[in-house]
Simulated scan of single mutants.
Amino acid sequence: MVFDVVKDRLAVWRDRREVARQRLEAADEFTWVWSDTVNPCSHEFGADLTCRETNTLATLFRLFHHWNTANQLQKEHERGPNCNNAEPHPEIVEEDQ
Rank of each mutant, 00 (worst) to 15 (best):
M1N: 05
M1S: 08
M1I: 02
V2M: 06
V2G: 03
V2R: 10
F3L: 06
F3R: 08
F3S: 04
F3G: 00
D4M: 07
V6H: 06
V6Q: 05
K7W: 01
D8S: 07
D8V: 00
R9T: 00
W13L: 12
W13H: 04
R14F: 09
R14S: 10
R16P: 00
R17N: 10
E18I: 02
A20D: 13
R21S: 13
R21T: 13
Q22S: 09
R23T: 07
L24T: 08
L24Y: 05
E25A: 14
A26P: 02
A26I: 07
A26W: 04
A26Y: 06
A27F: 11
A27H: 04
D28P: 00
D28N: 11
D28R: 13
E29P: 02
T31R: 10
T31S: 11
W32Y: 12
W32H: 14
W32M: 10
V33S: 10
S35H: 13
D36N: 10
T37N: 03
N39T: 05
N39H: 11
N39G: 00
P40C: 02
C41N: 14
S42C: 06
S42T: 07
H43Y: 13
E44I: 05
F45E: 06
F45R: 05
G46R: 05
G46D: 05
G46S: 04
A47R: 06
A47Q: 07
D48Y: 13
L49P: 00
L49F: 14
T50P: 06
T50A: 14
C51N: 15
E53M: 12
E53G: 06
T54N: 12
T54A: 15
T54I: 01
T56Y: 04
L57G: 01
A58Q: 07
T59G: 07
L60G: 04
F61Q: 09
F61C: 12
R62W: 06
R62F: 03
L63Q: 09
L63N: 13
F64A: 03
F64N: 10
H65D: 14
H66Q: 14
H66R: 15
W67E: 13
T69F: 00
T69N: 02
T69C: 11
A70F: 09
A70T: 07
N71T: 05
L73R: 02
L73E: 04
Q74V: 01
K75F: 01
H77P: 13
E78T: 14
E78K: 15
G80V: 10
G80R: 08
P81Y: 10
N84M: 11
N84P: 01
N84Y: 15
N85H: 15
N85W: 14
N85G: 09
A86Y: 11
E87Y: 15
P88L: 11
P88Y: 12
H89E: 03
P90V: 13
I92Y: 09
V93S: 11
V93T: 09
E94W: 08
E95M: 04
E95A: 01
E95S: 03
D96Q: 07
D96C: 05
D96M: 07
Q97E: 10
Q97R: 09
Q97M: 06
Q97Y: 13
